[in-house]
Write a protein that binds this DNA or RNA. Structure first.
Length: 774
DNA sequence: ACGAAAAACGTTTTT
DNA sequence: CGTTTTTCGT
């Protein structure tokens, strides 16, 4: 191990590391070496005789947990760190619950419902109650239930809380409490816990079974919590219970980076930590090792607008660096083009690799323009977030089989696969089974097992019986075979693999490959020994299923070091850093989000989000916004974000934002009409349209499908079209009609589009053309 | 029962 | 605009 691990720390960091006993709060500013302190502290604990077995470290993401574990191992060397309990709240509690779930009436192999499963259950219940789904939107109702659980409020309490009832009344959803009650019962009946239950039930377990609480209080003598500013009341209470005996609780966080209140997190947890225990030691890490002075000054000045923060003064010894660059473009597409052009230019000028760049946005939907422009310049990229691997349809379908095999009570999973692949069990049958199950208060599966007794006959009965027999055969197989072998058999027996294999479309091919990848991951799982001292030989399918439900896209670290530009939401970027950052879409109603401009609290959270975005950058930061962008299908005009006004002038270069703050000009875009028809252009987009590309203008080029329709674009009636006309198409741009054919009500035009690869046949009923010149 | 076509719906952010 | 849900015809 490294002998001098304490020498690498500054004075404050060292103080935090060597304060081993008693409650400790570390206020860790952005880029102040938080992870280093946490990991060194764990190592130091162990060097001072604390058994890894007695240390619990809770993080927010799997990725953070993994990194922490690796770094501790690096300091200590060997595999001393193996017995550490490091993980996310959710995964650690899922593991603990696995042991004691039967005490609460759940199977040890309980299913974990992801948000999709949970919403689907809510939706089913709303339908069963015959409620008007105009008022009872599954999404909103589920959010309400989730918020209740995060505050440790059960269905009973919910229905008797005057204030809550008033709120639901006002929202025209008075029966939300009833739905919550039924939802909780249904999940229980299905042997399933949702994400929030992993916290909620953990709390219930500790509260109801003193011997269980005592066991863990004894085991976890030292507790560390990362990102404490993002914990919710349930997490807070659990930590309080677990740490009550030893009180060796170390929380690390930064109130300025609290960005998860929508998920029930309360910034009060960190603001009030000092009041929760006697003799709390507070250490502030204020030296930033990440960013330039320019970047840090901008961040500090903006966040200072928020009220009621923990006092701190983040500073750096780093160079002043370039000013932050603010760029305005006309449209969202031009914003994408600007960013891609600048990446290409910066790679040449400053010798960056693709991996040095990150594009940060407020909402996932914003990624598209950047994908297109990056693809056009052949710059490799990867989007984090959005649909994770395990949320793809073909994967969820396959996993649903495994879930049903493990847990016959899992109604959501059964419904998903009972007719996939198609086997003649349709909607009507499913509905009948559902009704019988509810009437008799038995599970969906039990009805299927006894289908004949419930009056199903003929082809339907055969289909159900075959399905039941097939699932049962998988279950028997599980006794003697491992998860991988069973999964392969599932793929064979159901014909799923073959079916996907025979689908030769691009998507079909991708789906086939995804399923193969899933099988590989199961194989890998069965061949890797567990690290946490649990049974090594019998790696059950149940554990695998519980694990993958808690994984997200960002945890897919296999191409961690691949040289690609990264795209993600600001939320997903928390804890990361990049040499060059583009924070895009800085417009009112987008960032800050239109949903969050109605209260000071919400607005301050948006500002913290902006702070997080700015502080991800090490040396260069570009902020961009567009005059107008497509949202909700139509062009929308936006004012620049208010956060831009809050930045100090002397560290910001606004010369590419039209000089002033408001809409007085813009960058890029201005491709003239004459240019559009210039057939000689065949190479990429004009570099001149990139304001920061001061190098000699590159040869101009014909962008493919980058066309921005002229304002007020409206399609003209196909009947009025004639050969020889100049027309505009929304995607292909301007062109000339060469020929017209087909029936009068289904005319097909041959159009020459100079900028979109030449002649195209267009079915006028589908593609919309606007006549430019007759 | 099942697919194709039409209509409706939606954007914060995620374990 | 793109995706999901409902409707409709067979």
């Amino acid at each position: 191990m490294k002998a001098n691990y304490l020498d690498d720390l500054n004075e404050r960091q060292r103080e935090a590391v060597i304060s081993l006993k008693g409650p400790l709060m570390i206020i860790a500013g952005a880029g102040s070496g938080k992870t280093k302190v946490l990991t060194t502290r764990i190592a130091h604990l162990m060097r001072n005789g604390v058994d890894a077995f007695n240390i619990l470290a809770l993080t927010f993401t799997n990725k953070a947990a993994k990194e922490m574990k690796e770094r501790v191992e690096k300091i200590l060397g060997g595999n001393e760190a193996r017995n550490l309990y490091i993980g996310t709240f959710h995964s650690v509690f899922a593991r603990l619950l696995r042991a004691d779930a039967p005490k609460l009436g759940y199977p040890g192999d309980f299913t974990i419902y992801d948000a999709d499963d949970a919403k689907s259950v809510v939706k089913t219940i709303i339908n069963e109650l015959n409620l008007d789904d105009k008022h009872y939107k599954p999404n909103l109702v589920y959010n309400r239930i989730s918020a209740a659980k995060n505050s440790l409020m059960g269905p009973e309490e919910y229905q008797h809380d005057y204030y809550i009832q008033q709120e639901d009344q006002r929202a025209s959803r008075p029966l939300t409490g009833k739905i919550y009650d039924m939802y909780a019962k249904r999940c229980f009946k299905n042997g399933a816990m949702d994400f929030d239950d992993l916290l909620f039930k953990m709390y219930v377990l500790l509260k109801s079974f003193p011997e269980v609480l005592a066991k863990y209080q004894h085991k976890f003598q030292y507790i560390m919590i990362d990102e404490y500013q993002d914990t919710n009341p349930a997490q807070y209470e659990i930590v309080k219970l677990l740490g009550a005996v030893h009180e060796n609780i170390c929380v690390v966080g930064d109130d300025a980076q609290s960005i998860y209140s929508f998920r029930g997190a309360t910034i009060q947890n960190i603001l009030q930590f000092e009041k929760d225990y006697d003799d709390v030691k507070v250490v502030k890490l204020e030296q930033n090792y990440r960013s330039t002075k320019s970047i840090l000054n901008v961040a500090n000045e903006v966040i200072a607008k928020n009220k009621g923060q923990i006092e701190k003064n983040l500073w750096t010894d780093n160079a002043e660096g370039d000013k932050i660059k603010l760029i305005r473009t006309n449209t969202d597409n031009e914003e994408g083009k600007f960013v891609s052009d600048t990446i290409a230019e910066q790679k040449l000028r400053n010798h960056y690799n693709n991996r040095d760049f990150c594009i940060l946005y407020r909402t996932n939907a914003q990624s598209r323009a950047f994908e297109e422009s990056l693809r056009r310049l052949a710059i490799p990229y990867r989007i984090f977030g959005g649909l994770s691997f395990y949320q793809r349809k073909e994967i969820k379908d396959f996993i649903a089989y495994l879930r049903v095999i493990m847990n016959s009570r899992d109604e959501e999973a059964i419904k998903r696969i009972i007719n996939y692949p198609v086997r003649g069990i349709g909607k009507t049958t499913i509905e009948k089974v559902s009704i019988y199950a509810n009437d008799q208060n038995i599970t969906f599966w039990q009805v299927l097992e006894n289908a004949r007794d419930f009056g199903f006959k003929g082809g339907t009965l055969d289909a159900i019986d075959n399905f039941v027999t097939m699932i049962q055969s998988f279950r028997i197989m599980l006794d003697k075979h491992n998860a991988y072998e069973v999964a392969v058999q599932v793929g064979k027996s159901t014909n799923m693999v073959k079916e996907l294999f025979n689908d030769k479309t691009t998507e079909g091919l991708a789906r086939y490959e995804n399923v193969q990848e899933l099988l590989n991951s199961i194989k890998e799982f069965t061949e890797t020994p567990t690290e946490d001292g649990e049974l090594l030989d019998n790696k059950s399918l149940g554990i695998y299923l519980q694990q993958i439900t808690l994984l997200t896209d960002a945890d897919n670290t296999n191409d961690e070091n691949s040289d690609v530009v990264k795209l993600m939401t600001i939320h997903a970027a928390k804890g990361l850093e990049f040499p060059v950052v583009f924070t895009v879409g800085l417009e009112e109603s987008l960032f800050p989000s239109g949903m969050s401009i109605n209260s000071r609290e919400e607005l301050e959270e948006e500002r913290r989000l902006f702070y997080v975005a700015v502080t991800r950058a090490k040396s260069r930061l570009f902020l961009t916004y567009a005059n107008s962008r497509y949202r909700f299908g139509q062009l929308q005009q936006n004012e620049p974000s208010r956060f831009l006004d809050e930045m100090p002038e002397n560290f910001v270069d606004r010369s590419y934002a039209g000089g002033g703050l408001r809409n007085t000009g813009s960058v890029g875009g201005g491709v003239s009409w004459g240019g559009m028809f210039d057939k000689k252009r065949t190479t990429p987009a004009p570099a001149a349209s990139n304001p920061l590309a001061r190098t000699a203008p590159k040869p101009a080029a014909a962008p493919v499908s980058t066309h921005v329709p002229t304002p007020g674009f409206t399609a003209d009636d196909p009947a009025t079209m004639e050969a020889g006309m100049d027309v505009e198409h929304q995607k292909f741009g301007f062109g000339k009609i060469l020929n017209l054919e087909g029936a009068p009500n289904n005319r097909i035009a041959t159009v020459m589009f100079p900028q979109a690869g030449g002649e195209k046949k267009i079915m006028l009923n589908y593609a919309k053309l606007m006549i430019v010149k007759k």
